[in-house]
Design a protein around this nucleic acid. Structure first.
Length: 465
DNA sequence: AATGCCGGGAA
DNA sequence: TTCCCGGCATT
């Protein structure tokens, strides 16, 4: 379908284009924005084009494309003024808000993709896809934090992830985006059908629409299973968006500088530690290694927390951490992050404590699975008081979780993606009750007086806890 | 070591 | 199903 859709769109159409957070509109921008429509008038005048072999320029100044972008559940119209192929950015002018925003194309319909690829070498695209995934996950997490969640059923399918996949590169992995076949990449988020829904992007639509239809091999259908869990996870209770902030900490030895924006931290790393030499690509990418995202938890007034939490569950903490990923080396620094980050931490954090959640991926092994059965793959759910979940130490997350070093505060276990409904891990036995059991009460010599369960060495039914 | 009980097997 | 029991986790 995706292909059909794209086929119908003008080559330069932005329709369906998913873009990452606009670098300027950050505030309040929680849901991944998406250009979901290209107004007709523009579509009708496709431009000849890249046949010439030149880098495609999206809407040329003279041919701006009008697009509808959705973010934070709102639709706005804008004019795509220019497309910058190398960075995949699209500049959109939004008259309504008087904003000039820069979006990053994340999920571009094939038509567009193709044109873009003309000027970009294949490898790049691949890398991009990987990043895309990360960003996606990150976006989801953030999104879920800020949007009122819909509580969903307990994640039962989380385990669906094929081990093999998980084993591979968790990062890339996360991008189910059929990365393998670059051509099939039609971003599952932007399931065509989803277009009009402002709600946070879910992978759900994807299996059916885009990539799956195209070419995902049966064996690799991890997609389907994955995506679902994804959704399911989401639900978990989240903290108010303010309760946790994401900041970036410099990991350079003896530095530890913490900044609120990813851009800032990168700049810091680059200038302070890597030397400002403008560019060796190498450098550029390296900076990603020297900072990590940290969660700052704000302690909200007790009552406030109680009243505000959408759900009755008190999900203590969560959050995740995402840090520079190895892939960062291969790709240009994600543009999305800054926006997300900034929106997430708009204000200064008053009383808070830091929870440095994880380290670089290469430092922490990516944990693959949660022993507990109900886990979800990339689900973004929050581990709620996990004290009862010993096995949860390692969480699997498609792309952003790491096995974390036990934080000082037990409650802080957070997982980016994890999800686990507050419940006792299946693996563990039920806690021994306080009540005396038949054996104790009657003694082994009066076994005949025990309840049958006790006699059968089952959980006592007479003296229930 | 004693308990409590899950997971399974046998009848 | 009902009975049993190996074996493991807890106490």
């Amino acid at each position: 379908m995706a292909s059909v859709l794209s086929r119908r769109l003008g080559k330069r159409s932005l329709l369906g284009t998913r873009v990452s957070a606009p670098t300027a509109l950050a505030d309040g921008m929680l849901a991944a924005p998406q250009i979901h429509a290209v107004l007709p008038d523009d579509v009708s005048c496709p431009q000849p084009a890249e046949e010439s072999g030149r880098a495609p320029r999206l809407p040329s100044p003279s041919h701006r494309q009008q697009v509808l972008v959705t973010y934070s559940g709102q639709e706005c119209t804008g004019l795509a003024e220019q497309h910058n192929p190398p960075s995949d950015k699209v500049k959109v002018l939004q008259p309504e808000q008087g904003l000039h925003t820069c979006w990053r194309l994340q999920d571009v319909p094939e038509a567009l993709q193709r044109s873009v690829s003309n000027s970009i070498d294949v490898p790049k695209r691949k890398a991009d896809a990987a990043v895309e995934m990360d960003e996606m996950v990150a976006a989801m997490v953030l999104t879920s934090l800020s949007c009122s969640p819909v509580v969903q059923s307990p994640p039962a399918s989380e385990s669906g992830i094929p081990p093999s996949r998980a084993a591979c590169d968790p990062w890339k992995e996360s991008g189910d985006v059929s990365d393998s076949g670059s051509s099939t990449t039609s971003g599952h988020w932007s399931g065509g059908s989803d277009i009009s829904t402002p709600s946070p992007p879910h992978p759900e639509g994807s299996p059916k629409h885009s990539s799956e239809a195209l070419s995902s091999p049966p064996a690799d259908d991890g997609f389907e299973t994955d995506s679902d869990p994804f959704l399911l996870d989401e639900p978990a209770p989240r903290k108010r968006k303010n309760s946790v902030k994401v900041m970036y900490k410099c990991l350079w030895p003896n530095c530890g500088k913490v900044l609120r924006s990813i851009v800032g931290i990168k700049r810091h790393v680059k200038t302070q530690h890597l030397g400002d030499s403008a560019d060796s690509d190498q450098r550029k990418r390296e900076e990603d290694f020297y900072y990590t995202e940290v969660q700052v938890k704000e302690e909200p007034a007790p009552d406030a927390a109680a009243t505000t939490s959408p759900t009755s569950m008190s999900a203590p903490i969560i959050i995740q951490q995402a840090l520079a990923k190895p892939e960062a080396l291969l790709v240009e620094p994600p543009v999305l992050e800054p926006a997300l980050a900034s929106s997430a931490l708009s204000q200064s954090a008053p009383s808070s404590f830091w929870h440095i959640q994880a380290d670089h991926a290469y430092q922490a092994l990516p944990s693959i699975q949660i022993p507990v059965s109900p886990h979800i793959f990339t689900s973004i759910s929050w581990a709620t008081a996990t004290s009862t979940l010993p096995s949860l130490s390692s969480v699997r997350s498609r792309s952003l979780s790491f096995s974390e070093p036990h934080p000082p505060t037990p409650m802080l276990k957070s997982h980016l993606i994890v999800a686990s409904p507050p419940r006792v891990p299946l693996g563990s036995r039920k806690v021994r009750g306080e009540a005396k059991k038949c054996r104790k009460v009657y003694g082994i010599e009066h076994r005949d007086q025990w309840c049958t369960a006790c006699r059968w060495k089952k959980a006592c039914q007479r003296f229930l806890d």
